[in-house]
């Protein structure tokens, strides 16, 4: 891999809630990874693993407990609220949410939902230009441009998710965080939305952070995948490496639980339980270590050779 531009660098990010108090929750506990320009980075894990918190920290909905997040080389925690830089940052990074019912204001018309970002950033000069741009965006996401005056409740779940995507695209962002964008949709609609996201990515050279628990869809859309568990990254590598040659026992266990639409495979399936006690043995030295080309596993120094051997097979 030649030197690719890193759009996001997460360095030793810790995100604790109620730090120092008895009810402290270590949602994200020292993770580091980079996201390259133009790729789709998949983040998977069970509920409570900290994957959504990571996404929200990157878009600065939270201030990190410690650690740094760099967006195009700039430390995002240094950006002042209500400053010009903040406006610039918000324009370049957008989010698509999980629930297409809750993430659209029911009392706003579609055109106002989509154009809100245009107004805030002053991207259009007059109403005519505004309408023009909104109609363009609706076309891009495959909705009828004549529906601009409708309200969200007049659309189906899949269509609403398209509106959410149009809203994110309106300000021409470079980086989009998609937090479980298809989990609330029906199977036949999921494929439509995923195809749309891929199309737009190709055309606009977008970078995605794709957060999900549906592992087969993540495998399909992502270039690289990180597996998260208890606030830490267990394994990170190319989609192919993580899925077809998983090394960490947690990844193996997670993959062994994914149901596949194939009765013959399901009859033969054996599930691998994950015993988290292996983490406790030498916990303080555990970190992500590179086992193969760009394939990292959360382990201690002495386990590296064992994993390398496994990979040779």
């Amino acid at each position: 891999m030649t030197e690719r531009k890193k759009i996001i660098q997460v360095q030793h990010l810790k995100q604790y809630f109620s730090p120092g108090k008895p009810n402290e929750v270590r949602a994200v506990d020292d993770i580091s990874f980079d996201i390259y320009e133009g790729e789709t980075f998949g983040l998977v894990g069970e509920s409570g693993s900290g994957k959504s918190t990571t996404g929200r920290s990157i878009i600065r909905l939270y201030n990190p407990t410690s650690g740094k997040i760099l967006f195009e080389g700039q430390d995002i925690s240094k950006i002042k609220n209500h400053s010009k830089d903040m406006l610039h940052f918000r324009r370049n990074m957008q989010m698509i949410f999980q629930d297409p019912y809750a993430s659209l204001d029911p009392r706003m018309k579609v055109k106002d939902i989509i154009a809100e970002g245009l107004d805030v950033h002053g991207l259009v000069k007059n109403d005519q230009e505004r309408d023009q741009r909104v109609k363009e965006l609706l076309k891009v996401v495959g909705l009828n441009p004549d529906h601009v005056t409708r309200y969200p409740h007049e659309f189906s779940g899949g269509q609403r998710q398209r509106i959410g995507i149009a809203r994110a695209l309106a300000v021409d962002p470079k980086f989009i965080i998609a937090d479980e964008p298809i989990s609330a949709l029906d199977v036949s609609i999921q494929a439509q939305v995923v195809n749309l996201m891929k199309d737009i990515q190709r055309k606009n050279n977008l970078t995605y952070l794709f957060i999900a628990h549906d592992l087969s869809m993540v495998k399909y859309i992502s270039d690289r995948i990180a597996v998260m568990h208890h606030g830490q990254l267990m394994e990170l590598g190319s989609a192919d490496a993580v899925y077809n040659h998983p090394l960490h026992p947690y990844t193996k266990s997670l993959l062994s639980a994914v149901p596949l639409p194939d009765p013959e495979i399901e009859r033969r399936r054996t599930r691998l339980p994950y015993d988290s006690s292996i983490e406790n043995n030498t916990h303080d030295q555990r970190q992500l270590r590179e086992i193969g080309d760009g394939h990292y596993v959360f382990c201690s120094e002495e386990e590296v050779d064992g994993y390398k051997e496994q990979m040779q097979k």
Binding site: N195, S216, L260, P261
Partner: peptide, 12 residues
């Protein structure tokens, strides 16, 4: 429309 683990690159 469901990707299997060997669905690659191509459009779903």
């Amino acid at each position: 429309s469901m990707p299997t683990l060997d669905t690659k690159g191509a459009k779903l």
